[in-house]
């Protein structure tokens, strides 16, 4: 279907006026750089396996209520009658049975399997949303700073530096617990949805900077290219330049930044829950599960094992996919 460049050049050179074309004939479709990248990705086995694993996790997470119905156990149901006097699960390996595939939590006796499904839902939602928001903000800031230069660049770069200098953890520890008090009275419950939004907000406030820097650098190198000047010479306005000319060339770094941001937010949210400022009881959450399970390493290792392994697989799959994506989108081949 496609001519080799040399052949095509020779033919074009020698037959300046090619065959007369019928106006309604469908043109031959070339392979865009995006399609080439997708083909390369398909060939990478690690990427495909990671992709399948991730899709599986996402489907499980989205279908959490359905799974709870089929499984027969909800995430907040307690089975304390299946615990011994010390609050430890009866039976083998932390209480694994046909009814409770991953066993029970000590003390409260909740089912670990269904709590993990729900925990995955929470974590994935927060991670994706935070990654989306930070990428959007970062891209907007980076494009404006990179393209407009001058005072706009100076101001945005200064804001970026300040945001990078602020200590995220200290800020989070100071702000997150008190934000609920501002919006909800002393007798009102802080709903989980609000906690989720606060976490996304905290991540967004600090996470956009690396994407902004990345995009700004790319834009600076792109804006001097002659196709941009050609657009300006044709009378293009700022909007066209940014969105029609520059943005299509930025997809590769943006996509890679996004795909690596998601796992970092999964672990980030788990870490905040570990410190007690993430998602609170009784909503299921990976980080809190791991935090509560570590003292039981000697006495109920299954309790530590399941959430630990799951978050490990999840983050590993994302990282492998992100790396493969970066390789597939290698700019050298987009020539």
């Amino acid at each position: 279907m496609s001519l080799s460049p040399v052949e095509g050049a020779a033919r074009a050179e020698m037959e300046p006026a090619a065959d007369p074309v019928k106006p309604d004939e469908q043109g031959i479709v070339g392979r865009s750089p995006g399609q080439l990248a997708w083909a390369r990705l398909r060939r990478d086995r690690t990427a495909m396996v990671s992709g399948v694993v991730l899709v599986l996790f996402v489907v499980l997470a989205l279908a959490a209520p359905l799974i709870a119905k089929l499984y027969g156990v909800g995430p907040n149901e307690q089975f304390q009658q299946l615990l011994d006097g010390n609050g430890m699960p009866l039976g083998y390996v932390g209480g694994i049975t046909g009814d409770h595939w991953f066993g029970l939590e000590p003390r409260l006796g909740r089912d670990i399997f269904i709590r993990m499904i729900y925990g995955m839902r929470t974590s994935l939602f927060i991670a994706f949303a935070a990654a989306l928001v930070t990428t959007a903000i970062g891209v907007a800031a980076g494009i404006l700073a990179g393209f407009l230069g001058g005072i706009v660049d100076t101001v945005i770069s200064w804001i970026t530096d300040v945001a990078l200098a602020l200590p995220f953890l200290i800020f989070a520890l100071a702000v997150v617990p008190t934000v609920g008090l501002r919006f909800y009275g002393p007798r009102e419950e802080v709903p989980p949805a609000f906690q989720v939004i606060v976490l996304i907000g905290i991540f967004a406030a600090f996470g956009w900077t690396s994407t902004a820097r990345l995009v700004r650098g790319q834009v600076i190198s792109l804006r001097e290219r002659e196709f941009v000047e050609a657009a300006r010479a044709s009378g293009a306005g700022l909007g066209h330049m940014l969105f029609r000319q520059l943005l299509p060339n930025l997809w590769a770094p943006i996509l890679v930044a996004f795909s690596l941001a998601v796992p970092s937010y999964i672990t980030g949210e788990a870490a905040l829950s570990f410190l007690g400022i993430g998602i609170l009881e009784p909503t299921a959450d990976f980080g809190r599960m791991i935090f509560q399970s570590i003292p039981y390493l000697q006495t109920d290792p299954a309790y530590v094992f399941f959430p630990g392994v799951t978050i490990f697989i999840l983050v590993l799959a994302f990282n492998l996919l992100g790396d493969a994506l970066r390789d597939a989108l290698d700019p050298k081949s987009s020539r």
Binding site: D84, G85, N86, M88, P89, L90, G91, Y92, V93, G94, G95, D300, P301, A302, V304, F305, V309
Partner: peptide, 23 residues
């Protein structure tokens, strides 16, 4: 991963038959 899993699970392989209520 599989080896790790086996190790962990083996450590928890004895059955917990409950306590006798003695505190």
């Amino acid at each position: 991963g599989g080896a790790l899993a086996l190790l962990v699970v083996m450590g928890a392989c004895s059955e917990n038959k409950g306590t006798d209520g003695d505190s």
